[in-house]
Design a protein around this nucleic acid. Sequence first.
DNA 1: CTCCCCACTTGCTGCAAGTCAACCCGAGAA
DNA 2: TTCTCGGGTTGACTTGCAGCAAGTGGGGAG
Lengths: 249, 249
Amino acid sequence: MVATQTVDTRYSKPVLVAVNTLADDENGLQPLRNHALFKSLSNADLQSLIAQSRRLRLGHHQLLYRQDMPAHHFFFVISGRLRLYRLDSSGVDRTLDSIAPGDCFAEVMIYADPARYACYAEALKSSEILMIPVKAYQELLDTNPEYAHAALRHYAMRAVSRFHDLEVMTVQNARDRLIRYLIDLLPNGATEGGEVELPLPKCLVASRLAMQPETFSRILADLKSNGLVRVNRSKVFISDPKRLIEISQ
Amino acid sequence: MVATQTVDTRYSKPVLVAVNTLADDENGLQPLRNHALFKSLSNADLQSLIAQSRRLRLGHHQLLYRQDMPAHHFFFVISGRLRLYRLDSSGVDRTLDSIAPGDCFAEVMIYADPARYACYAEALKSSEILMIPVKAYQELLDTNPEYAHAALRHYAMRAVSRFHDLEVMTVQNARDRLIRYLIDLLPNGATEGGEVELPLPKCLVASRLAMQPETFSRILADLKSNGLVRVNRSKVFISDPKRLIEISQ
DNA sequence: CTCCCCACTTGCTGCAAGTCAACCCGAGAA
DNA sequence: TTCTCGGGTTGACTTGCAGCAAGTGGGGAG
């Protein structure tokens, strides 16, 4: 069942999306069960939540919501990839986060007041997401204290990780910020090397790290020529993270 | 009733604090009632929580906790001021936040797992804080769903404001970051001018904004000579925030 | 296949910010 | 009072990063 709807018409350039109701289609939603926000839900409650949700398909560069739009939904990424960004007064676009399949975003809106999106969200490639009404989840929280615990745990983790991001951004020079960023992408916390995939195109990683794309490119070329990394498109191979860390002092 | 105790002995330089149990002394705790985390508590529950808490007095530059210390408490500031910071591998100290009376901090630990402090915390001047056992608050959350709602609302606000901080740090040049910081200190969101007090000594504001103290000083001097601000010790008077914003493009 | 397009790279130049050092000045101690 | 100390400012110099512009190369459209 596929329809087309306008998510919000009060803003310029209405966002058009293909919609797929889920009551009759629960395939591909296993990952939901693995997410902290849904893991503890009873089957019945999860079904009910899914029934009230919509599955959206977003195309490359398609905008999902705008900053300051009233927020009635939060989102779960089934496939694809999105990014969160803001625009400053001069129209410069500053990337704040990237979202992978299995992640939630804008979930903070479940309790924010006033409930308005804090940034823009757009698909980086063709993506499928679940659009969950904030109200439905809120009501669920009331029915079982354990659900609230799960939500609190999730929020706490989020807060810690944002705090961590903030720390990286107080690193003063561009090279060290980039190194910190790469290290943080390593799954096993710098204990051993490995290949990491940049979650964003290079020019957006640059924006995320408060530097110009050219600077990003030059620093990476420099690390490469020093044998610290090997780069293949969006994949960066880090042989010796320890050495990388001591380079950054 | 005043005693002295060692907060944690497993780390070098044990932190010594003067302790004042609160069962018999509830004075000066009105501000607790105004904080989102405690506002909705019943009198009995609040009393019980206070009874399980300790009032600490910290001296100038006294360390309250270290990064990665196991976290069994979170804190409410009664008077004074604290700062949160991290140390990188080369020992450089990077300020992440400042805490004023009436604020909570490390409250994210109520639900973090593993529960370890994400940063260092030290008093910037003589301060009085309430040290609340995480476990006591957790247990309270179980007794009343409304308490969990309050906590979730609070966490959501925190997340939004950290997100905002992150955005400021992606501003590329030092002058604009400083301007954004000053604007954010204005109580009424840049609609009208006013005098703001820097919540940290200038050299720490500089660290918070990822710049050198000299750069901070020069930028402020420049804004001053352009008539955009007037500076008196730690107070900055902003006559026309609109103009300041357009300067920063 | 060819062409174009877009993401990225590279070279060059200038400016913003870091570094090092000297100096200032107010607060507190002697 | 004078001395010292610490936070802050200023100056001279150096450097890292940005800005612009030209070049490269892979992928998709036709």
